[in-house]
């Protein structure tokens, strides 16, 4: 592994439950207590029903690649050894979409609609970053 790690996301108060769950290998998203809509990244206000009450709920971690791009340019030194790599919008089975990486596959073999499953990469003691692998690779 390269010495330079990817940028560590700040554990903001809003994202803390997400990273706490990730540490235990659990993917969670925010759930509106008003209408039940799932959302990620977290927000104070539900754009669907305007409720300010929310909680965090576990999701299956199964979904599909909704869209993706392949990055070739190195904007941060940590990615110098990673390019080309895939950044994807993942549509979870539960319907909510989230940004992530798809790993464990040649990025050029990725297709929209491809089934994927969550996995985690440990960046440090606090951050286990959720990523996705092809679901065909039975975990």
């Amino acid at each position: 592994m390269a010495e330079i790690v990817r940028p560590i996301p700040e554990i903001t108060p809003e994202l803390r439950p997400f990273f706490e769950a990730s540490k235990n290998g659990q993917l969670v998203v925010q759930k509106c207590n008003g209408c039940g809509a799932l959302r990620f990244p977290p927000r104070r206000l539900c754009a669907n029903c305007l409720s300010r009450e929310s909680s965090w709920t576990p999701v299956s971690g199964e979904g599909e690649v909704y869209s993706f791009i392949i990055m070739h340019r190195v904007y941060h030194p940590a990615f110098a050894t990673q390019v080309p790599y895939a950044v994807a919008t993942i549509k979870l089975k539960e319907g909510v979409r989230m940004l992530s990486n798809v790993i464990g596959i040649d990025p050029h073999a990725i297709r929209c609609g491809m089934p994927v499953r969550v996995c985690f990469e440990k960046l440090n003691d606090e951050v286990n970053l959720p990523m996705f692998r092809p679901a065909a690779d039975a975990a």
């Binding site: 869209s67 993706f68 990615f79 950044v87 940004l99 929209c112």
Partner: peptide
């Protein structure tokens, strides 16, 4: 880029339109 975008290596104004283009190609 900041936060999770930076952690996932999503940089630049190009990425949003690239996502749209990929999806347009797929659909």
């Amino acid at each position: 880029a900041r936060g999770l975008d930076a952690a996932y290596g999503l940089y630049g104004a190009n990425s949003g339109y690239a996502m749209v283009a990929q999806r347009h190609m797929h659909v």
